[in-house]
């Protein structure tokens, strides 16, 4: 049987999750043929180096202008066409964001089920990861070809096969619909700097901020500390900040060196989102606020006075 693997590549090298997909393909195909397909803007991009060692027999370098950028539907049509031509018994891709997207398009085109994030496969029986890793599901997929993606880093990419992969170029016949979906422009995330989840310092405001404008001093302090700005659920409910800023169990979980919580009472759901913080500084007018139970440092006072005072002191201390 022939198994077709979709490879993601950059700068002439195949990504690790794609090589892991090849390894799973080999275990599925036994001694038979593992062929691969990669989308290339031109022939110089075909990532053939070392593929033979991973057990790939043939690399089909699909050439099309559309592949100069990421074009999931076009890649999917290419894979579907090639799979049909090869009579592939299975089509496998890496379970990355893009791999899952491309294979989902393939599944839609062929009107077949897709088993995403598999960790092993034997015939039509697959084991796959569900629920953010808390559950392993054993499933049987009744489809031909079998469509799978492989959970990244769940198995190691194996080398040691003898041989080299021959490269064959392939020009897909793409529909107009396939070309409609393409990258038009790339823009950096508009958060204006540090991401909340990775920030070393986070300054958050709660209901005590009083209004959207009340975040002015918090943003100022965050700017001085090179920190990300966060907020509590009460703030997003009130519409003062977007949900992407919310720290909490139902928002972003953070793990900064220091978390400065201003006017935040410290509801359990909020504290569940900042339990990764090494140190917590609470600024709160209410001496009984629950957050004081978890805070390492606290200032009892109106955040509208305390926060600007800290900013002023920081400015004064800096040359």
């Amino acid at each position: 049987m022939t198994v077709l693997v979709y490879l993601e590549h950059a700068d002439g090298a195949v990504d690790e999750p794609s090589l892991q997909a090849v390894t799973l393909a080999r275990s599925l195909a036994r001694a038979a043929s593992v062929q691969a397909v990669s989308a290339c803007g031109d022939s110089t991009q075909a990532p053939a180096d070392g593929l033979g060692g991973h057990g790939v027999d043939v690399l089909h370098a699909a050439m099309h202008d559309a592949f100069a950028t990421y074009a999931p539907r076009a890649i999917a049509e290419t894979i579907a066409e090639l799979a049909g031509r090869l009579g592939a018994a299975a089509v496998i891709g890496p379970g990355t964001e893009r791999g899952n997207e491309v294979l989902a398009h393939v599944a839609a085109l062929l009107d077949l089920p897709l088993a995403a994030n598999c960790v092993s496969a034997s015939g039509a029986e697959v084991t796959r990861i569900r629920w953010g890793g808390s559950l392993l599901e054993e499933a049987r997929v009744d489809a031909s070809p079998l469509l799978l993606t492989v959970q990244p880093h769940a198995l190691a990419a194996q080398v040691g096969a003898q041989g080299t992969a021959t490269v064959e170029s392939f020009t897909p016949s793409l529909s107009e619909a396939a070309l409609a979906l393409r990258v038009v422009e790339r823009a950096a995330a508009a958060t204006g700097g540090v991401s909340l989840a990775d920030a070393k310092v986070v300054v958050s405001g709660g209901r005590g901020a009083g209004s959207a404008e009340g975040f002015g001093p918090i943003e100022e302090l965050a700017g001085l500390l090179d920190a990300a700005v966060g907020c509590s659920r009460a703030v997003t409910m009130a519409g003062w900040r977007p949900h992407t800023d919310q720290v909490g169990q139902t928002g972003t979980k953070i793990a900064p060196e220091i978390y400065i919580a201003c006017g935040i009472s410290g509801a359990t759901q909020h504290m569940a989102g900042c339990k990764g913080a090494k140190r917590i500084l609470a600024i709160n007018a209410d001496r009984d606020a629950p957050i004081l139970q978890s805070a390492d440092y606290a200032v009892i006072g109106d955040m509208h006075e305390v926060v600007p005072a800290i900013s002023a002191a920081l400015r004064a201390a800096r040359p």
Binding site: W131, G132, S134, Q249, T250, G251, K253, T268, Q269, M271, A272, K275
Partner: peptide, 17 residues
């Protein structure tokens, strides 16, 4: 957003982890 709760109930024996 409720996924963490489901995981924490199973793993940590309480919904807040």
């Amino acid at each position: 957003e409720a996924g963490t709760m489901l995981r924490d109930v199973g793993r940590s024996s309480n919904p807040w982890g």
